[in-house]
């Protein structure tokens, strides 16, 4: 579904991604871990099309299409969803209104008819039920006055409603207490399906106790330096990131 080949990206003169390679198949959950500043959020931003990041080299294919050529909204309509690390507030705009505009923009792109108010409400209610979220959320303005946990939960709710094919979770666990973390993880697990892939970006292993990944990658200094199964996350948890650095240095000397 997603193929990232030799991806380089920078902000200004500062090169952050220095040749990332990654392959994600439908139905898989990949975790991207790494220390602060390794380029995790940059990778998420580049995939979503945030324009502060300049891609200098490499390719990204999504379902065979060149993702990097698309505008951010086109990527979204094609099925790429980013759960933001810091969800943005849009005062005065209700979640319902916001999501209806989004759903219909996506449906239009896919040649489907726009949903009318009734069908849309049914869709919303169905998704609320799956995620065990109170209906109250629909009337509230997008993220305005939300607690950190509520914001993250709203991201997962939006993800459920928009039914993307590729879900990128950018440090969704940051700032969450254990209960909120569990709720968010339950939501993600409820959305796992054979034709949907997840890229879970996280600093800590604890989220991966709840969202069990098929593969774990370590991003270090702009490159994926180590890949493995879910046990790699546990190893990182107990040993920290330092040993990877040593290993790399060792490899360089050899």
């Amino acid at each position: 579904m997603l193929t990232i080949f030799n991806l380089h990206a920078r902000v200004g003169d500062n090169e952050i991604l220095k040749g990332v390679n990654l392959k994600v198949r439908a139905g898989e959950v990949h975790a991207i871990m790494g220390p602060n500043g390794s380029g995790k959020s940059t990778l998420a931003g580049v995939l979503a099309g945030r324009d502060v990041f300049e891609v200098t080299e490499g390719d990204v294919l999504f379902d065979g299409k060149n993702l990097l050529e698309m505008d951010p909204e086109e990527r979204a309509r094609e099925g790429v969803f980013l759960a933001f690390q810091y969800p943005v507030e849009i005062p005065g705009v209700s979640n319902t209104y916001f999501l209806k505009a989004a759903v219909n923009a996506i449906r239009k792109h896919r040649g489907l008819e726009e949903l009318d108010a009734m069908d849309f409400m049914n869709l919303m209610k169905e998704k609320l039920k799956i995620l065990h979220i109170d209906e109250d959320l629909l009337k509230r303005p997008v993220n305005e006055g939300f607690s950190g946990g509520e914001k993250k939960r709203n991201e997962i709710f939006q993800m459920a409603v928009l039914e993307p094919r590729l879900c990128i979770l950018d440090e969704t666990d940051s700032g969450l207490d254990i209960d909120a973390l569990r709720t968010v993880a339950d939501g993600v697990n409820a959305l796992r399906s054979p034709d949907r892939a997840f890229l879970v970006i996280t600093h800590y292993q604890r989220l991966l106790n709840y969202i069990v990944p098929d593969k774990v990658h370590v991003l270090f200094d702009g490159r994926i330096v180590k890949s493995g199964g879910k046990e790699l996350a546990l190893e990182l948890e107990s040993k920290g990131y330092g040993w990877i650095e040593e290993e790399l240095a060792h490899a360089a000397r050899a």
Binding site: P72, R75, A76, L82, V88, I90, A101, V103, A105, H109
Partner: peptide, 12 residues
């Protein structure tokens, strides 16, 4: 940021 957020959800 607000505009990008909306675009990421599919809006022009």
């Amino acid at each position: 940021d607000q505009i990008f957020y909306c675009k990421q959800r599919g809006l022009s």
